[in-house]
Write a protein that binds this DNA or RNA. Structure first.
Lengths: 256, 256
DNA sequence: CGCCGAATTGAGTCTATTCAAATGTGGTGG
DNA sequence: CCACCACATTTGAATAGACTCAATTCGGCG
């Protein structure tokens, strides 16, 4: 499997040297669980976090139907979550970037309902649920923050549901690129030059299209001078127009 | 607006006479927030619940972009949640039955991202967030339960996303009917004879189809002797086959 | 250089849509 | 009681967007 250029976090975003006491100094703090926690509380959160060695592309962070043990906060790189159906087909549920929390759906059923797979070299912080449940009892701010994270996830999932259900291929792809650009920007990456860590097939699967349609739609957007495309490298030439194309009914203001 | 026959809860399911101390005696207890709470904790939950007068078909329980104040537990009847886009179009996000908690998405953004509208005569219990936040601090069991409810919602939303993104019109409609039958059964209604409280247009909007397609697909399912259809009354004639039609890749065992 | 997987491009097909018309139903008022 | 209206629903015919199948190109890597 050919490796795409890695999504390496800029030095200022993740301090690789401070593996210990990490949440406190982690520059993902504003995007992750510690957001809005004071230093004392973050220190307590730090104690339960288990930091993992890097995963390589294709390796699993957790597997569907594994017994539910932990939430994971992504530290670097990117992941996809995918659900395996009984008939052997797979559905991609999402792509996940540094600072995002994955594994939340398991809180309901007690088992992971999807597998998380690294799309490139990636690291994650593990938050064991047992200890997290203890910690939220004594840290109302953490408890509140966790509710907020979950509320956001419900909100984002419903937004995505509407995009995938109601929009055309071009609208879906435009939304996808804009969404990615916006999330990358918050993490200190360029919001104009994106390096996709997933294949066309992954994008197609995620958007409910075929890879041929994704390819053709990219070609059309390039022909219309909205994007410049070079394999996994996407340059946004006309953000305004991409936004208009993303959906006639989208209501988010441009904030990318 | 012509009224469909009302989804009236069987006497054994909701005791209308005990409006006070209601969570304790409410027979939706096993489906709602109090699930797995002991009597002392339920009594405390009772104190914060504000019970409302019935809403008529078409009336709003809360409105999109209203300041976020409360969660709502449905007590009787049914609701739809729908998102209004900037261009004036509306997207239905879900249909909601007694015992279900709605308004969870607001926990992230601080405002409701959809409106909740009664589909028939309906009542709901209001759970003000301010007091709920206080209560979860002292009731770990309630806190735990609320996480579980939110985890389930994330899980269900993702399941729905896959159905709407990956399946054909017939698969979507079959899934929809089976899902409804299953949820109605848990609430003491027949899982064979369903009374739909929503219009064909609502179903189409929810499933990402046109109302013509919904109508044609119902007609096909009736012609194939899978359903018997009389306006809003649906009789499931062949549950086994409906399940097979619902999706080649669905993995839930038949449990309806 | 040649292999292999990823990605692109082309041609024909099919599902669901759009547009249009007809039918059915419940409620209202004469 | 019946005529009529508004609205929900059904049905038909033509269209369009995405899909399938197939062939080709591209790029990285041994």
């Amino acid at each position: 499997m050919p490796l795409p250029k890695e999504h390496r976090m800029p030095e200022t975003v993740v301090d690789i040297t401070s593996v210990k006491a990490s949440c406190q100094r982690c520059s993902l703090r504003q995007l992750c669980l510690p957001q809005e926690l004071d230093n004392v509380d973050v220190a307590k959160l730090d104690d339960l976090v288990e930091r993992h060695n890097p995963l390589q592309r294709g390796e699993y962070l957790f597997r569907q139907a594994d017994q539910y043990k932990s939430l994971f906060a992504i530290r670097s790189g990117s992941f996809k979550t995918q659900h395996l159906h009984k008939d052997g087909t797979e559905s991609i549920l999402g792509f996940h970037l540094p600072g995002e929390i994955i594994g939340l759906a398991g809180l309901g059923s007690g088992e992971y309902q999807a597998s998380a797979i690294a799309l490139e070299r990636a690291t994650a912080c593990e938050l064991p649920m047992g200890r997290l449940h203890e910690l939220v009892k004594v840290l109302p701010s953490l408890n509140h923050q966790l509710y907020k994270v979950m509320g956001c996830r419900i909100s984002e999932d419903q937004e995505m549901l509407m995009v995938l259900r109601d929009n055309s291929a071009q609208e879906r792809l435009a939304s996808f690129i804009l969404n990615l650009a916006q999330r990358l920007k918050r993490r200190g990456f360029s919001s104009v030059n994106l390096i996709l860590s997933m294949t066309r097939q992954d994008i197609a699967n995620f958007l409910g299209l075929t890879l041929e349609t994704v390819s053709r739609t990219f070609a059309k957007l390039e022909k219309d001078c909205v994007l410049k495309i070079d394999r996994r490298n996407i340059q946004i030439l006309d953000k305004q127009r991409l936004f208009k194309l993303s959906s006639a009914s989208c209501d988010d203001p441009i904030n990318i």
